[in-house]
Nucleic acid binder design. Structure first.
Lengths: 213, 213
DNA sequence: TCCTTATAGATAGTGTTACTACCTATAGCG
DNA sequence: CGCTATAGGTAGTAACACTATCTATAAGGA
């Protein structure tokens, strides 16, 4: 197909497709002459993936590029989730040494209990330390006490993620599903948590009128 | 305290504090003369909250303003979580009528099973529909099958959230903790899910070297 | 009292991000 | 032959979150 059709099929404006081509998010089409190229279903698919990561996942163009680069890397299946996480941004904040030690102690206890590996200095560890320290700094250390419950939920979700993804069999499909599942899964969980909050609130404080946000 | 001290205490540059004042994120200080004002601990606290919502929660200035507006509203305790959610952005995408019907059917089943209320047309419902339809549109409808597991996890987390927050007793503290817990909790859960993925992956595919992101 | 520094408030400027528009030369096609 | 489409390049734009500068006044010490 040519550019106009690619744009129609994907719902992405031509100018934007050209931008994604320049940015390396979309592989170039097959050349048919110096200023003509042909695109196919894989380009449509890739465009939809890009839009999903941008619009729902909230990723930046740079993060999408990283994630997509991970898709192409030939790695063994057991690293699939690592690839899926490759390039995903996690928030980080500065914390004092004292606060970091406090948070790390909590995280080490958690890691031991759940057989997790929390390597100090990694973005994930930094993100966790940042959130815990921020809870404390904001005067709500009690929020950090929920770590166990959150971890339980995370294990539950991760088990489901792995089952679903592993069932796909082929590496290519697994990696893509892992990426999509990880990024969109965050959005899904956030929305479901809002609904569960509403129910938990109703259960504790009595029935309330349904109030649109 | 005066501006310089407020800046030092909060770690936010003076120019930025002025910006937040203009944007209505930070209440003005107590006037002592036409061009002087006094600030107190509540301003330091508010600034820390703003930075947490921006840096960790990833909210926009406009979203922070909405959330903060919710903090000030005098509402009964049972609406606390609604206030916490007031102004929090949820991603939305356009979907076809057919896809929306498919997604809504799934969501209605879920809502009935878990005694949740999913009001069609609300941002939360739209976000859920968007994610489910995007899974399908990307050729991974199997990812939508995990809704139940995700919902279970969300119920678990929400129960913990409510217990923690309700124990605070006073409305003011409850609302603030609910806001912080909701926004930072999303980041916390995302990071924990990454760790749980790593463990689940190790369990299924054998021990792997710890690989920093 | 004088003098240096600090401050409020206003306005303007900056850097980044994610597009969007325009231009030119060539290609497809009825 | 002529009209539209296209690749690739450059430039412009709108939103966002600050950041810098300016002016008139205030604070606080020598």
């Amino acid at each position: 197909m040519r550019m106009a059709e690619l744009s129609r099929e994907s719902g992405v404006p031509v100018a934007t497709i050209k931008y994604y081509l320049r940015e390396g998010l979309l592989p170039p089409g097959e050349r048919t002459s110096p200023n003509q190229a042909r695109y196919d279903a894989s380009h449509v698919r890739r465009l939809k993936l890009i839009r999903a990561l941008l619009d729902i996942g909230g990723l930046s163009i740079a993060a999408v590029r990283e994630v997509i680069a991970g898709l192409a890397e030939g790695t063994s299946t057991h690293d699939v989730l690592g690839i899926a996480q490759h390039g995903l941004p996690l928030p980080a904040v500065e914390v004092s040494d004292e606060a970091r030690a406090w948070a790390m102690e909590r995280l080490e206890t958690l890691a031991e209990k759940r057989d997790w590996v929390i390597a100090p200095g990694t973005p994930i560890a930094e993100a966790l330390v940042g959130v815990l320290c921020t809870y404390r700094d904001l005067g709500h250390p009690e929020l950090a006490e929920r770590l166990d419950d959150y971890a339980e939920a995370a294990d539950l979700v991760a088990g489901s993620d792995l089952d679903t993804v592993a069932a796909l069999g082929q590496r290519e499909a697994i990696v893509e599903a892992a990426v999509i599942g990880t990024v969109l899964g965050d959005a899904l969980h956030a929305a479901l948590r809002r609904l569960a909050h509403a129910k938990a609130s109703r259960d504790r404080f009595g029935a309330t009128a349904v109030k649109p946000q």
